[in-house]
Structure formats: structure tokens, C-alpha cells
């Protein structure tokens, strides 16, 4: 009996974005990637669900973070040296991008100065060839100053900055417009909030083709059930033709490291380092399966395994 692929009429598709600019386009990145462009749900071949391989951005923190288990072990040599950390992501760990998080600039924390932070960004930019993402510390006024300070330097690079939130999107959007970067629009686990923020950005004349949506990644066991469904609903709404929600999605799976199953020694839960990789890895697979085009990852081992899963799902693995 003949079995036909169960075709469905899919009126919409996901927008595509080029991350990073090489010399050819006036930048200094060694590589650039197209993400997005999906015409169906992820990894469905007959309908071109994933024409462009989803990419992995490895996170680098500007101030030494308090990591545990596998993350602490694997990143031990670089945690207080963001430049070396970024280089290792590119050279040793298979990162497609580096996401530099300016956590050290937070006024409630270490409160590193704008000049210091910008100098770090400059050094990272000069030290790695992969496309870059720059995440603020969450303090609107400080982030605005940081983005202004690094703006001229990242303008030609096809970089990504973030995050823009509903109550403070204008300063981040203004920076992304002024410095010609992509922008991460961040919403809180709700398809309607995601859509609303995109509409605000579009009304602010922000170009749709430079938005990447972050619908908030819940960690395995701690909200994955919500994020998985929100991601799927966004992807389905985009495929159904809703233009305000057709932007590629980014999910920060590093959150998978933050819960005790990922790091606590236990007689019941088994070996902690393996658990650690799996907690981040399953969290990442949930968003990739649902519709993420870009994931942020912390552990080198998680990156290795997620790359391997992508090889196999994309069909080039064995």
C-alpha cells in the first residue's frame, strides 16, 4: 500500500537572518550563518522544516560566575578570563557564536564601569572570528550606556544585542537601529506577550528582519512544559501566516544548569556531571524540537552533544 506524506497547507514561513558579517560584507568575522527560513515544524524534511541548521551560541560572562558541577569543572580555567573563555568556545568547544553577557556591569553586583565593559567587548571582538552576541546586565540605563560605547565597534559585524523587554524596549531598539545590529525581543512565556512586543518594535519602526524572539526558556523540570508549548505555538502561528511572529527564535538553555538536579551530588540521582550535561542538553533539545533557531549553551560537553544531535536530525550524522 502506498503511503503518501501527510501534506499540510502551510501558508507562512519563518524569516531568515544572517548572523555575522565577513570581510566581503564589510565586517571582520571569519564566518557568517543564515538561521531561520523554516517552512514547517522543525526537522521535517518533506516540507523543508529546517533549511538552515540551528546554531549554538556559547555564553561568556564578563564577571566570574558562580558555576557548579560540570560547568565549573569544564570552564575552570577560563571563568575569570572572558577573553580566553571566548577563544576556547571558538577554538576548542565547537561554538557557532559567542554570547558575551555583561553580567559584571550590573549596578547591584560588581558594577564594572562602562569603559571597562566596552574595553572587554573590544578585546573579545578582536580575539574571536565567530559572530557575536552582546547581552546587557538588565539595568536599562547602564545597558544603554554600554551599547552606545560599543556601538561603533560592532556596527559592521552583523552582531546581535539584547535583550529588549516590553517595559524598556526603546533604548535597546534605538541602539540596535543606530548600530545596525539584530535585536533579541524577550517576552515572558506567553505567545501573546511575544507578539505584543514585536508589534511595539515594529511600530517603533524597527525592521522585522532584524528581530530574534526569545520566548523565555524554562529548564527541564522547572517550566519546560510551558516553554515547549509556547515555542510550538509561536512556530505554528508563524507557519499559519501571522507576520508579527515569524521571526527566528532564540532560547537560552543555559538555564538548565541552574537547578539542583544539574549539580547537586546525590545518592539517588546518580553521577552529577552526566546529569549536568543532560539537564542542559534535554532543555536545549526541547526548544530545538519545538522551533528554536538559535540556542545559548553553557557547558562545552553540552555543546558537543547538541551539535551531534543536530548532525543526526539534519541527516548528515552517520
Amino acid at each position: 500500500m502506498k503511503v503518501e506524506w501527510p501534506t499540510e497547507k502551510i501558508p507562512g514561513s519563518i524569516g531568515s537572518i544572517v548572523l555575522g558579517k565577513t570581510a566581503e560584507d564589510g565586517g571582520t568575522r571569519k564566518v557568517s550563518y543564515t538561521i531561520g527560513g523554516g517552512k514547517s515544524m522543525p526537522f521535517i524534511r518533506a516540507e523543508n522544516g529546517t533549511p538552515n541548521r540551528p546554531r549554538i551560541a556559547m555564553e561568556v560572562h564578563s564577571a566570574k560566575p558562580d558555576f557548579k558541577a560540570m560547568a565549573a569543572e569544564e570552564l575552570a580555567g577560563v571563568l575569570d578570563d572572558p577573553v580566553a573563555w571566548a577563544k576556547a568556545c571558538e577554538n576548542d568547544w565547537g561554538a557557532d557564536l559567542v554570547c558575551l553577557k555583561f553580567t559584571g556591569a550590573n549596578p547591584d553586583g560588581e558594577d564594572c564601569s562602562v569603559d571597562e565593559t566596552a574595553a572587554l567587548a573590544k578585546e573579545v571582538l578582536g580575539s574571536v572570528g565567530v559572530p557575536l552576541m552582546f547581552y546587557g546586565c538588565g539595568d536599562e540605563s547602564k545597558d544603554s550606556q554600554i551599547m552606545s560605547a560599543i556601538g561603533d565597534m560592532i556596527r559592521p559585524e552583523g552582531a546581535v544585542i539584547g535583550v529588549a523587554e516590553a517595559d524598556s524596549y526603546k533604548s535597546m531598539a534605538a541602539a540596535a537601529i543606530a548600530f545596525n545590529t539584530h535585536l533579541v525581543s524577550f517576552s515572558n512565556l506567553d505567545i501573546n506577550l511575544a507578539k505584543q512586543l514585536n508589534i511595539l518594535l515594529l511600530e517603533y519602526d524597527f525592521p522585522a528582519e532584524r528581530i530574534i524572539m526569545d520566548p523565555l526558556q524554562g529548564a527541564l523540570g522547572y517550566g519546560v512544559e510551558y516553554s515547549f508549548s509556547v515555542i510550538e505555538r509561536i512556530r505554528l502561528a508563524a507557519l499559519a501566516g501571522d507576520k508579527t511572529i515569524q521571526m527566528p527564535m532564540i532560547c537560552d538553555a543555559s538555564v538548565g544548569n541552574n537547578y539542583r538536579e544539574a549539580y547537586e551530588p546525590s545518592d539517588i540521582w546518580g553521577e552529577a556531571n552526566t546529569r549536568s550535561i543532560l539537564w542542559e542538553g534535554v532543555t536545549a533539545m526541547s526548544s530545538l524540537t519545538g522551533g528554536a533557531d538559535l540556542v545559548i549553551i553553557r557547558c562545552p560537553s553540552s555543546t558537543k552533544y547538541i551539535n551531534r544531535m543536530l548532525d543526526r536530525l539534519m541527516g548528515g550524522g552517520d
Binding site: L220, G221, V224, E225, F228, E261, I268, W269, G270, E271, A272, T274, R275, L278, W279, V282, S286
Partner: peptide, 14 residues
């Protein structure tokens, strides 16, 4: 082993 099955039962529950 437990470290492999804990993530599996958790994603299943989710």
C-alpha cells in the same frame, strides 16, 4: 543508570 533516567522521567512528566 539514575543520572540517565532522571532526565527522562522529568521530560516525560513535563
Amino acid at each position: 543508570s539514575p543520572e540517565l533516567i532522571l532526565p527522562m522521567v522529568t521530560i516525560r512528566l513535563n
